[in-house]
């Protein structure tokens, strides 16, 4: 049980680091890396819980998360390239032509 708790704490810390990174970083690619960190923190949670509960659902879930993260990376980097072509920057402070 102690083992499970330490895994859960590590993944909660990783998730928080990712969240803080998304909120404070300025470069779109670094933000995306922080999002990946959040997803991998979730993966760690799933694997730890799966091991603890003794059923494989959590590990299967992790495969889907990894696949989806790869698809997201492809689409996200393509969007960043399209933005860079027009604006020559991927700094989120430059994503600013629309404001209320």
């Amino acid at each position: 049980m102690e083992n499970l708790n330490s895994y859960l704490i590590v993944s909660a810390i990783l998730f928080s680091i990712g969240t803080i990174g998304v909120l404070t970083r300025k470069n779109a690619i670094v933000i995306f890396m922080c999002i990946e960190l959040m997803l991998n923190a979730v993966n760690l949670t799933f694997v730890a819980l799966s091991r603890h509960l003794g059923n494989l659902d959590g590990q299967i879930f992790v495969f889907f998360v990894m696949t989806v993260a790869a698809a997201e990376a492809a689409v996200g980097l393509a969007l960043m390239i399209a933005f860079y072509n027009n604006k020559e920057s991927i700094d989120v402070e430059d994503i600013n032509i629309m404001k209320w």
Binding site: F15, G18, T19, V22, A28, I31, F32, I35, M38, L39, A41, V42, T45, V65, E72, V75, G76, L79, M80, A82, F83, N86, K87, V92, I95, I97, M98
Partner: peptide, 21 residues
């Protein structure tokens, strides 16, 4: 449109993280 796509992507995948957790 670029901006819309990028913003949607960044915030959408951010929210996916919470949902997954």
């Amino acid at each position: 449109s670029n901006e819309a796509g990028l913003k949607y992507f960044l915030l959408g995948s951010f929210s996916t993280g919470f949902l997954l957790y």
